[in-house]
Each structure stands twice: as structure tokens, then as C-alpha cells.
Design a protein around this nucleic acid. Structure first.
Lengths: 333, 333
DNA sequence: CCGCATCGTCGAAGCGCTTCACCAGCATAA
DNA sequence: TTATGCTGGTGAAGCGCTTCGACGATGCGG
């Protein structure tokens, strides 16, 4: 293994000079800098991460907690993660993966100085992990938005606003009875933050306009069809749909085709999903994009800034945008 | 921060004794052990990972390289990862996530002693990362099976055998013209190892029995329907399907329903996908399960064993199993 | 009763890096 | 001239842990 001593020797300087060249924490003459950099390249030196973290008390690693629970949309999770990883790297950080549901995993990583900070995904409205986080020395941030006091920064998409926005669109198209085809039942039951907030925004939007809206949990697999059928059967007057679970999209879409686009009972759909999913549906749908990668990027930026001593930003919500792909004609009353 | 010195002081022993209690590398009297363990708990001590890795020259971290390319089945990837993470933890290892497509990311992690070993996913038939791996000090293993010389252990599902197995089943049911509805075109184009091997097994199986089989790339999204339609239109005599891409499953299934199960032209389907996906299809299908989590578990076991100095196992392929869910009646000739 | 393993514990030497305190050399100000 | 302040460089003291060699205490056979 080649160490900083070898580099210093090769360059004919002291090891502290080599260290200062790498960190840039002191001015170094151009001539010396060149010699050191050459030596580093010639020897293929890369500093020992452990030694570095011991001496500098920082690891350049961020812990990422993702409880891999059932019902989560892996597609979205993956995109968020990929945003985090990529952006963290540009800040010089690597990601340590923590997937155990047990918060002690995070504690272990933090207390053992394995990470400089923690990022926590899949937040529930009353998440037990938050208590653990506040006890830790390292800064942390949540990807999601729990209820109650928030002494930890939160980054997320504004699902509540998305609910309002979808209702606005459906109302503008003349629909008076709305339904939210939401997350799988287990996600709802856990009070996963985004599911709660979407439902809240949706219901508040409905209430504000004096229309009736109902929320329906919907599994992610083939059973989605059954849920759609049931909603259509038991609430026949429903014509406005906010569809969060993409598994339901094809079925409600085929119902639309079946009934005829110009029928007065023809449903209108607003899909809430990543942009590529909305485009992959067998026909145009209005959609509100879930900017999964952007969430990851924002989260990485926030946490890196906090590590650098920046002030925690409180809550950072990415605003929803509605993309209209269907004819905007208001339906006949 | 509480260090080993504090623990030693609290327990009234030397720091080396504390260290030996934790590592178990020397015999310790029960009485002393109890005192030390009590001190550790009282103070809430957890050893500094950096210091540990500096002194012991091992990190208890495994690097996991996952290039997040388009067309990969995130569902499967996630399950593999979750298997790896869970199993690695039971061996005492954490996972460092490396997603950059650039192999230098792995090199950085390895050369900087950030990881004890590397696990590499999404292997292509002629993968450029393999060259980098062989240069490194740390052991590594591949999840996948590249072509050519294999001086690095490989763990994977036996996709080639799965191809044979599916052909056997379809032939046994009396079908004489087979098609593989495979991975998305970009996955095929990259010569992703599993796609290549599945096609090879499938074609070899067909050839061995003197029947004609064709391989069709199939996108993962809504365009899957178009591919299915095209195959049915241009190769009308096809009745036996091996479907790898689950996106195509519903469409070919609805074709089956349309044409009538008892029609002589009724297609037979063998699905190759995780068990839960096969169960979520709107009807029974014969399927070969892709044991994603088991792959992750096997990979974690292999790499942990290698770190402990075990001999690398060469190639470890998990055998496919066919689950029959449809009537086994041989169709009329 | 002595010599010799064995057991349990300790002291101290690193592991490879960062960073503080210090210093020599030089330019500038008094 | 001497005092003053930069600039660019060095030496050495840790950071918190593991591990090697040493050492007193005990048990045993001769």
C-alpha cells in the first residue's frame, strides 16, 4: 500500500505539505504543488479513508436509511436514491446503505462515526426514527414530511398541493364527484407521509369546492383492477379520478375507452406518477409529475450543506406541476 | 464522544482488555468480561469505525456497484439488493452504494480502503469493470455471468437452464413454434449477461428439439403491448411463449382469453419473473421464479466468505424451478 | 519444593492521516 | 536600521483502535 509518506518522499517534501496540497487548506507554491501532484499520480496514491476519518473526524459518507417495506413504489424509490447518490458524489460524499427497519442500524452507523450525516426515506406521519435522529450528533434530514413538531429538515414533493391541483383540474373539466385511487392499503395503514398528505390535499380541495371526494386504497399488482371495478360499481356517479397508483391506470383507462370518450359518464383522469410512467400509458393523460430524482438531488444538497455547517432549511417542498395532455373541453353538465 | 479509554477506566481494566473482550481474540475471565460489558452499556460505547479500520486494516464494509441503467427491472434489482444488505449485516458488514457507471468509483473505494470487498451487479457479457476488479487488492464477486475467462467468482440465477426448462414445458404441452418475449431492447443491446444466457438456453432448447424459436426484445412500459401484437401478427403460428418481461404478460394473457383457452391456437405461457409477480397476473400462469432475494443472499455469503479467506467458489448458479399452474393437458395436434 | 506451561491482563508500538505551532525567508513599514 | 507581517514550508502531537510481546499468578508433574 502506498501512503502519504511515500508521496512525500517521492516529491521531496514533508507529509504535511502533501496533506495541504490535497486539502487546499493552505497556500502552496505552484512549483511544490506540481511536484506533489506528480508524485501522487506516479505512485497512484489514494489516502486511507479510515486514517482520514480518524484524524479529521469526518468520513465523507452519508447514511441513507430506506426501510424496504411492502407496497412502496420501487421505481420512485430507485430514482430518488439515484438522485441522492449522484448529487452526493459531486459534493464528495459516498452513500452507506441502511435498510434495516430497526432504527438501531442508524444509531450504530452514527455512533460508530461511520457517517457524517443521515438521510431517512419513507417517512411515516408519526415516525419512530425521528426520536432517534434527534439524539445523534450528526445532522440528519427526512425525505418526507411527518406530522407535528419538525426539528429536523424535511425535503419532499408537495403531495398536499398536488391533491389540490388535481381537484382543481377535475373541477375545471366539470366533474363533481371525485375519487382518489391511492397507495396500497399497507402504505395507507402505516400512515406513510406522502399518502396522508395527498389524501388531505385532495379531500380539502373537494371540501373547499363543496364536492364529494373519496379515497380508495389500491394494491400495486393485478388486484388493482378489482379495486377500480369496485369503485366504478359502488360509486357509479364518480367521474373525476386522481390516480396515484400507476397499476390502476391501465384499468381505469380501458374503462374510459369502453364507455366512450364523449359519453357524459366518461371519466377524467389525473395521474400522479413519474413523467416517464405517464408517457408510457396507452393514451394521453393529464398528469402531475412526481419529480423523484429532483427530490433526491434536493435532499443531497440540503444534507451536504448541513454537514458544511449551513443552517438547516426547515421544510423544503417541491411544487407540483400539472401537465395537460387531454382536450380541455369542459364536459356537458 | 466516548472512547475505549473511558470504557477501560469505567471497568477498571486496560484498553487492550476492552479490545479483547469485544473481539474475542483472547480468553478473558468471566468476571472481567462482565465488568467490561457493563461499562460498554453504561457509557453507550461504540468503537470508532475509522480508528478500527486503521488499526485492523479492515472496514466491515462491502462496496456494491449497481449501474442504474435504463431498462433494468428495478423490482428485481431492489430484491437482490435487499437480500445482500440483510445477509451482509448478519455477517457484520455494511453496504456502500456505488452507482456511478464509471469503474473508477469502485477503484476509488477500494484503493482508499473504504471497503473490504466489492460486489458488482448488472454484468454484461463482456464487462469492462472486470478488468478493474482483477487489479484490486480486495476480493470481489459478480452477480451475473460474463463470457470468457472467469477469474472472479460469479453468482446468479441459471438463466440458461431456465430457457431450456421453459422450452421443455412448452414442448410437453404440444407447442411447436416458440417465442421468447425478452428484455427491453437496450438491455439486449448491451448484452446484459442474463438476457444473453436466457436467449441462448431458449434457442439451444428449441434447436435440440428441432422446433423453431425466435427471440423478441420487449420494452418494459406500455409499448410492450405493441410488441406482443406485432409478434402475434407476423408470426401467427407461434403458440408457445416464454415471457421474461412482465410488462408483456397482461397483453399476451388477454390474447389468450380472447382467443379462448380451448382453441387450438391458444397460446401457452411460461413466465420468468419473481414469484409475487407471477401470482399477481390476472389468472394462472406456469412460471419459473427468479429468486432475486436468494441471489442477493448467496452473493453476500460468497463475498463474506472470501473476505474471511475462504476459497472463491468459481461459478454459483441457482437452479430454476418450474411451477405449473395451468392444466397440463397436451393440446391437440 | 522447583521448574514449566497456561491463563488473564497490561503496556506500548504502531496504523496513516490532519493540523497546530513554529520557523526561515523575504518584503514592507516605521 | 529595526520592527512587522506574509508566505511557504516543516515537525510532531495526536485521532481511537488493534495487537504483539511481556509478565505476574496459578496449577501441575517430577
Amino acid at each position: 500500500m502506498v501512503t502519504i509518506v511515500d508521496v512525500a518522499h517521492e516529491a521531496g517534501v514533508s507529509i504535511s505539505t502533501v496533506s495541504y496540497v490535497m486539502s487546499g487548506k493552505r497556500t502552496i507554491s505552484p512549483e511544490t504543488r506540481r511536484r506533489v501532484e506528480r508524485a501522487i499520480n506516479v505512485l497512484g496514491f489514494s489516502p486511507h479513508a479510515g486514517a482520514r476519518s480518524l484524524a479529521s473526524r469526518s468520513t465523507n459518507v452519508i447514511g441513507l436509511q430506506i426501510p424496504l417495506r411492502s407496497g412502496v413504489d420501487v421505481h420512485v424509490v430507485m430514482e430518488v436514491v439515484s438522485g441522492i447518490v449522484a448529487r452526493a458524489r459531486t459534493h464528495g460524499y459516498d452513500i452507506l446503505l441502511l435498510t434495516s427497519d430497526d432504527p438501531r442500524g442508524m444509531e450504530r452507523a452514527a455512533r460508530g462515526s461511520m457517517v457524517d450525516a443521515l438521510l431517512v426515506m419513507d417517512i411515516e406521519s408519526d415516525d419512530p426514527r425521528i426520536g432517534v435522529l434527534t439524539q445523534l450528533e450528526q445532522p440528519s434530514a427526512l425525505i418526507g414530511l411527518p406530522e407535528g413538531r419538525r426539528n429536523i429538515p424535511c425535503i419532499d414533493f408537495d403531495f398536499e398541493q398536488a391533491g389540490w391541483l388535481a381537484v382543481d383540474r377535475l373541477l375545471a373539466m366539470g366533474h363533481r364527484r371525485l375519487a382518489l385511487i391511492g397507495s396500497p392499503p399497507e402504505v395507507m395503514a402505516r400512515h406513510t407521509s406522502y399518502a396522508d398528505r395527498l389524501a388531505r390535499g385532495f379531500l380539502a380541495g373537494c371540501a373547499a369546492s363543496g364536492v364529494v371526494g373519496t379515497v380508495h386504497a389500491c394494491p400495486g399488482d393485478a388486484e388493482a383492477a378489482a379495486v377500480v371495478d369496485e369503485v366504478l360499481a359502488t360509486v357509479p356517479e364518480v367521474t373525476g379520478f386522481l390516480v396515484h397508483n400507476e397499476a390502476a391506470l391501465p384499468h381505469i383507462f380501458s374503462h374510459l375507452v369502453e364507455i366512450g370518450v364523449h359519453s357524459p359518464a366518461a371519466p377524467a383522469i389525473v395521474a400522479l406518477c413519474p413523467e416517464d410512467v405517464a408517457l408510457a400509458v396507452p393514451g394521453p393523460v393529464d398528469s402531475i409529475a412526481v419529480p423523484a430524482e429532483a427530490i433526491g438531488i434536493a435532499a443531497a444538497d440540503v444534507i451536504c450543506d448541513m454537514i458544511d455547517g449551513g443552517t438547516p432549511p426547515g421544510v423544503r417542498l417541491i411544487a407540483p406541476t400539472l401537465t395537460i395532455r387531454t382536450a380541455s373541453a369542459v364536459r356537458a353538465k
